[in-house]
Write a protein that binds this DNA or RNA. Structure first.
Length: 250
DNA sequence: TGTTATGTCAGACTCCCTCG
DNA sequence: CGAGGGAGTCTGACATAACA
């Protein structure tokens, strides 16, 4: 057992995929076995499992090649990297205009995940760690994401999570959540009024991809006493610019 | 320590090429 | 055209490792 991972078969699977990837066309079991220094039956069993999950394909001649599933997974990574690259300059510009921290989030199940940020240089500022998470109902962009998924999904979310309270301002009532998310959808932006943390307020908008799907959420976070309503138009404009840079036009 | 997952071995099977 | 042989593939049985 090598020390690169605690699961040998995962290491071997990765090795086999790397070997197959070296060949532009297809490659035989024997060659994969020789290059991996694994017994052919071991290689065969692992490849059979990979084929079952579409990570590997076999042609009519029984030769192996990488499967379409990898392309599918790769497109997710490419989309996320592309999103961050496109977002960075727009986020920095928004941060410079407002002087407050700007966050980029994506939805993952019942949470938003912070994937990029442009931090304010003010002494007192709001700062989210990249990779940290927050429930949908306590964030501005989370409410917009819930609104976009429809009232039924919004109710399901509320039942699944029980709408836990983080502050005295957190929305804990289903009907109020539905009302507030619908309102946010109509307005094209949402507030977080100290719902995740006392003293912190946000303004959030959605970012759409070229297919019109929700790609991310863009938000500005600030101490509540510094947040201004006139920022709404500026944040909306930044969200529109980012959507357009991803190929989405209204 | 028993169960489950994983790996190895050995041989059967299949396909294809060569030769008579 | 069919038998023989070799290369490659597949699978059953067993061994070993990992885990609860």
């Amino acid at each position: 057992m090598n020390n690169t991972s605690s699961i040998q078969v995962i290491d071997r699977m990765a090795l086999l995929l790397d070997i197959i990837a070296q060949y532009e066309d297809t490659v035989s079991l024997k060659i994969i076995s020789a290059e991996s220094e694994l017994h052919t039956s071991t290689v065969y069993r692992i490849l059979s499992s990979l084929i079952q999950h579409q990570f590997v394909e076999r042609d009519e001649a029984g030769q192996y090649r990488l499967g379409v599933k990898l392309l599918h997974l790769g497109s997710h990574v490419r989309q996320r990297i592309g999103l961050r690259e496109q977002a960075k300059p727009i986020m920095q510009d928004l941060r410079d205009k407002l002087g407050e921290t700007v966050n980029l989030t994506v939805r993952e199940n019942d949470e938003v995940v912070y994937v990029e940020r442009a931090i304010s240089d003010k002494m007192i500022r709001v700062e989210q760690v990249i990779g940290s998470r927050a429930p949908l109902h306590v964030t501005a962009v989370g409410k917009l994401m819930l609104a976009a998924s429809g009232e039924r999904e919004c109710r399901d979310y509320a039942l699944r999570t029980g709408l836990p309270a983080y502050t005295k301002n957190t929305i804990t009532d289903i009907d109020e959540l539905i009302h507030r998310t619908a309102e946010a959808k109509d307005n094209g932006f949402a507030y977080d009024n100290e719902e995740a943390e006392i003293g912190v307020g946000c303004i959030g908008v959605l970012v759409q991809s070229n297919s019109g799907e929700i790609a991310a959420g863009l938000s500005v976070s600030a101490p509540i006493d510094r947040r201004k309503d006139e920022w709404v138009a500026i944040v909306k404009e930044a969200g529109k610019r980012l959507s357009e840079s991803l190929g989405y036009f209204v």
